[in-house]
Design a protein around this nucleic acid. Structure first.
Lengths: 75, 75
DNA sequence: TAATTATTGCTGCTTTAGCGGTAAAATAAT
DNA sequence: ATTATTTTACCGCTAAAGCAGCAATAATTA
């Protein structure tokens, strides 16, 4: 998963929900610059900000590894 | 996926690979503070830095949505 | 086509992430 | 128990992220 994928996904689902970048930013509690930067695939955004935006769009972030994660380390 | 999950996962696989925070930071090309912060579940790290660290540990980041993503928006 | 709305880009400003260095706890090894 | 290593914490500094506001361009809609 690259920042380009994230950018595309965010943009697509934002469009789907019919809201503007500004509206998404406000719903997420971040500045419009953040949404703009995410959709521009900028990697400088903070995890913080990204998670807020993803949450609004109902997008979950998952980690995938070639190895299993023991139960005690899981959620 | 929360920052706590990320923290746990990073720490677990770093330990698995038998390297220190400092070594991981150097391999990822970030400062030791970044690795420390990730494992401390700080959300202030930049996507940039997080992706570098995850890459070293062979951990992939994935987005999950309740809705399908059209082919033209995929990778 | 004209008018409205959305997106992108820029600018000045404030806050802060990231950095290396150092030092103290905590943990592991001998 | 002592030593060595690792982790955590703190420090000042620099570079840059994030912000709102405005302007300009692009895209929608009437």
């Amino acid at each position: 998963m690259t920042s380009e994928n994230i950018a595309r996904t965010v943009r697509y689902f934002r469009k789907q929900s019919g809201i503007t970048q500004l509206a998404l930013a406000q719903l997420a509690g971040v500045g419009k610059t953040v949404v703009f930067d995410i959709e521009k695939a900028k990697t400088t955004v903070q995890l913080d900000s990204l998670l807020k935006v993803l949450a609004v769009l109902n997008i979950k972030l998952t980690l995938e590894t070639p190895y299993a994660l023991p139960a005690e380390n899981k959620t």
